[in-house]
Simulated assay, not measured.
Amino acid sequence: MPLTNNRGTSNSRPSSLHVVTGKIMYSRKATEEGWLKVKLDNGNFDFLHENVKLIVKGEKNARLYLLVASDKSNLIGQTISLQQENALKYLSSKGPMQKSASIKVEYVGKPVKTTSRFKGDLIQQFANLYVNGSIIKVTLNSLWPPKYSYSPIPAGVHKLMSPDNSHAKNAPTDWYRKAFSPGVITCNDIWFPIELNGEGGNSSRYIHLGNLSEGCVTVYDVEKWNVVYDYLINHRIPGTKGMYVGEITVVT
């Protein structure tokens, strides 16, 4: 760990922090859901996903203080802090690739009624998601007019944004993770917002795991979620302050 310093007799605590002001570090997940809890200067708490760029400001009272430099618009420019022991565990000098991720979604036929092992009978618009050499089954819509107003994502090239915040309150996904052996699914609460072509910002459509879609690109083969997650979380489009991870091409 780059922040450790075991040299010198004056440092009697093994694995203690050696603070280097201005050093760039990156966040790591602290929970299976995918988040790292940090303290703000005002005493409140917030959460970082992986690979948020942080700049070391200093250490005081066994806490490391860092400036948020990327990814989360509500935190960029703010100071956060971690307990020293957590800084050792959940910070790294290795960040994401400064390169746009590129994935593709291709519709598979017309909507069909199917029985989900998690959600029961639903009419699903299925598609194939091509990501990093893998082909993964996704659903693009499960709830249809006239009762619902949702529709599958349109054809085109759309931007993918960095994760925004937890969706556990309104759309919990932890039970997908718990249905498998530990480690098969991680970061289940990390959703990647989609910026639709011609529109600005989060369209309220996401890439996430699950068996029900309200117009999102929902990873139906949930046990393959981490193929998608690992690829996207490790990319950032250069020059966007980490706000965008890549592009998704949708073909009907």
Rank of each mutant, 00 (worst) to 15 (best):
N6C: 04
S10A: 07
T21L: 06
M25A: 14
Y26N: 11
R28P: 01
A30Q: 10
K39M: 11
K39C: 03
D41K: 15
N42W: 01
F47A: 07
H49M: 12
N51Y: 12
K60D: 00
Y65S: 06
L66G: 02
L75Y: 02
Q78P: 00
S81T: 02
L82S: 07
Q83E: 00
Q84I: 02
S92T: 15
S93C: 06
K104E: 05
V105W: 11
G109M: 10
P111R: 14
K113E: 03
T114I: 04
F118G: 10
I123A: 12
N128K: 15
S134I: 03
I135L: 13
K137R: 14
L143Y: 13
W144G: 08
S151N: 08
P152I: 06
K159D: 06
P163M: 10
P172T: 06
T173L: 14
D174H: 11
W175I: 11
R177M: 13
A179C: 05
S181M: 08
D189V: 05
I190S: 09
N197F: 12
E199Q: 15
G201P: 00
G201W: 09
H208D: 05
L209Y: 03
G210W: 03
S213M: 07
E214K: 13
C216N: 10
L232C: 05
M243E: 00
Y244N: 06
V245F: 07
T249G: 03
